[in-house]
Design a protein around this nucleic acid. Structure first.
Lengths: 205, 205
DNA sequence: CCATTTATGTGATGATCGATACATAATACA
DNA sequence: TGTATTATGTATCGATCATCACATAAATGG
């Protein structure tokens, strides 16, 4: 099972993370091969040998982002004891991770809705589904809360979920504009101020 | 006062609007000169003669956008009789204009926070100030409401204003992902559900 | 040792980027 | 009419884009 030819002289995972940073910061098209190879510390033939193409590297970077960076944000949706705490945790974790020092501000997957121009249809579809996944996860959490009699069954779940995802996506743009963590937390708390009203039992439509 | 040389053979304003559409749709860097000249129906020398450079054209497109497209969104902040109606009008007008048929979804200035990569410092500053202007306008409207005894004087005005701008910026991304006008209006109403809580008198910090 | 396999660095590919040189066309002024 | 002035189309500029050919280097299997 040992490797056959000349061993790779760089750490593939570390190089992928550097590439992720570049794509995260600049988007797909604006991240040039020169930017990538410079950040990764390798020459372009090594990049192509290890990752295939710029778009395949982008796709790997996206998946690496999802696997490593988005857990902190999504975990509260699974672990928080109440639906309210889940949504509050989701937004507060976003405020924290969107302003991590040394990392590009905002969420790479959210921002890709705007800066993944020039990417192929398949990659575009993957990104869109990732973003839609957040809405689904929140809907699912709300459905669970209804099943557990925490919330009434008459709610507009897609509407509520979309509202909170929209706030989180707006926070990505705010982070890009330099909003601090406390400011994003204030915004998150502002969004939670709608909770009681949004989760009151509603008349049948 | 008459023109001296050969008259321009295209409508400068119409060409600018076509260019605006391209920048609006794709951002600065991803909008190539070929995209622009094709959409404008002119050759590149005509573009350079009339607008100077790609970046100057972008700047004109931004200003044209601000002068023509953002009025509908900002008008309620000035005209609505109450602060609540002002904010609701701001978000509902955003839901409408972000999904206008035949136009790129979302707000060009908001999206520029993400897709104006590669633009010069001065242009970048202009765009950032435009986005900050929305927060200021909302703060100002809230201040007026306090002066008119509609709202208590103990509110966190920057926080409230940033919250509503954040929702509106998130709506731009939602629009990019294909959200319909009714869906955006639901999100806007979700944001307004926070109003009563946000504008309740608060204990001194 | 030699043969095979994989990775690397150098350097170049055609394509496209933003931006122009230049000759010509079309207008105003004299 | 001629001259000055501005715009247009063609054709191209050097630079950079993503990608790859190729010779060499470094490992394993025999």
């Amino acid at each position: 099972m040992a490797e056959r030819g000349r061993p790779r002289s760089f750490d593939r995972q570390a190089a992928l993370e550097r590439a992720m940073d570049v794509f995260w910061e600049r988007g797909y098209q604006a991240a040039s091969m020169s930017d990538l190879t410079e950040a990764m510390g390798i020459n372009s033939p090594s990049l192509y040998a290890a990752f295939g193409s710029k778009e395949e590297l982008y796709r790997e970077a996206i998946h690496h982002f999802a696997a490593t960076e988005s857990d902190d944000i999504l975990a509260p949706l699974q672990n928080a004891p109440t639906a309210r705490a889940a949504l509050e945790g989701y937004l507060m974790a976003s405020a924290k991770t969107f302003t991590r020092p040394g990392r590009p501000p905002g969420c790479m997957v959210v921002l890709s809705a705007v800066n993944a121009v020039g990417v192929g249809d398949e990659t575009s579809r993957i990104l869109r589904e990732m973003r839609a996944g957040s809405v689904s996860m929140i809907e699912e959490r709300l459905r669970r809360a209804i099943a557990e009699n925490e919330l009434p069954g008459s709610l507009d779940l897609p509407g509520i979920a979309s509202y909170y995802v929209t706030v989180q996506q707006g926070m990505s743009i705010q982070a890009r504009d330099g909003a601090s963590r406390p400011m994003l937390e204030t915004i998150a708390q502002g969004a939670m101020a709608a909770w009681d009203c949004l989760t009151r039992p509603r008349a049948a439509a």
